[in-house]
Design a protein around this nucleic acid. Sequence first.
DNA 1: TCCGGATGTAAACGGTTGCTGACTTAGGAA
DNA 2: TTCCTAAGTCAGCAACCGTTTACATCCGGA
Lengths: 206, 206
Amino acid sequence: MTTGTPASTVDEDVAVRSRDAGNTRQLLLRAARIRFARDGYSATTVRDIANDAGVNVALINRYFVSKEGLFEACIARVGEELGRPSVGVPTVPQILDSLTTQLVGLPSDQYPLQLMLLLRSSGDEGADRIRRNIMRSFAEGMAAAAGWHAGDPGADALLLRAQIALSAALGIVLLRTSTGLDPLSRATEDDLRGPLGDLLTALLGR
Amino acid sequence: MTTGTPASTVDEDVAVRSRDAGNTRQLLLRAARIRFARDGYSATTVRDIANDAGVNVALINRYFVSKEGLFEACIARVGEELGRPSVGVPTVPQILDSLTTQLVGLPSDQYPLQLMLLLRSSGDEGADRIRRNIMRSFAEGMAAAAGWHAGDPGADALLLRAQIALSAALGIVLLRTSTGLDPLSRATEDDLRGPLGDLLTALLGR
DNA sequence: TCCGGATGTAAACGGTTGCTGACTTAGGAA
DNA sequence: TTCCTAAGTCAGCAACCGTTTACATCCGGA
């Protein structure tokens, strides 16, 4: 059952040196991201990842210590790429824009890898802590658009609403990718923007 | 890593006959539901389930053919219990009520098992089809509250909104149970009703 | 009372898992 | 050219996976 659909063996980066530790690390990371995001942690085997990356299995343990370590590196990379802080407090429409694009996936990838990875858990405390921190800051960014600011006492209600909005986004990603539920799974970015806009303003205000 | 926290070995039903196929089937189903819901399909082992149920492992294959078969039986039971058709078309407030209670879990269970199971996939086509059908009819029930009725041409937008509402509910369940994200994970039914009500009316109208 | 099917048990099967250690090989520094 | 280290290979381990098989045991109907 394991192998399944290969995650489109990564073969970009022409003119690579034949022996380049940094490059093989990247190859492993890219392949692992896709596998973990698409199939989940425990359904993914290290041999699958190594095959997709075109790399020997043992190198996973060399460069990432363990399967857990590789997963944690994937999650951490999501934190870096998703956590690029936009200068200043974003507005609700800005949040809507970035969310909808993240939600259908960047055109370069065929999956919204970042958000899909956020849905996955390995059960390991290290990776889960990173994941939680990403979500926390993500939600705080959304709450800030509604007037919330850090350390604000008694404003849990606003933070809760932002976290609910985040839940909705992740739920949409999950149902779009892991079920064939129509019209949701076939909906385009434009189809989603309207309902999602209503959802956001209802939770966070105009 | 597998065994983990035991899923509170099921020991209800006093005065059971010592050898009762129907009863052991139920024991296996209850234990499996908790494991699958809490840990996911591939992270759950048949030995875990059998231990929790206090039953020999081989009986899983006897009564459910395979691990897949057991999972499919769990999903099907969700369909039965969740799909109890309320007479007539529900109103949005009624949907809100049933959704919030389902969302925090029935007081008898410590988890919202029904919705958590809906989040899980085994990759098997049989179980996934059942899952999809449950979600479809669930979303159609919600859309009906907003005036949608089956076969309505061009009303995909309304069905899409209902499916987004369902996504939101499932996303909330996922984040509440699989991450320690506060205040969301500690929110009570009352805390959730307000934001969730706004969300529903924004998507489906009053 | 006896028997036969239903129910439960124990052990093992082949395959897969993550991981390791001993090894070869490439490629730059001397 | 030589040599040493980083990078990659290979075979295999021990544990675990889902499943099967052969066997024990119970219990209701004859």
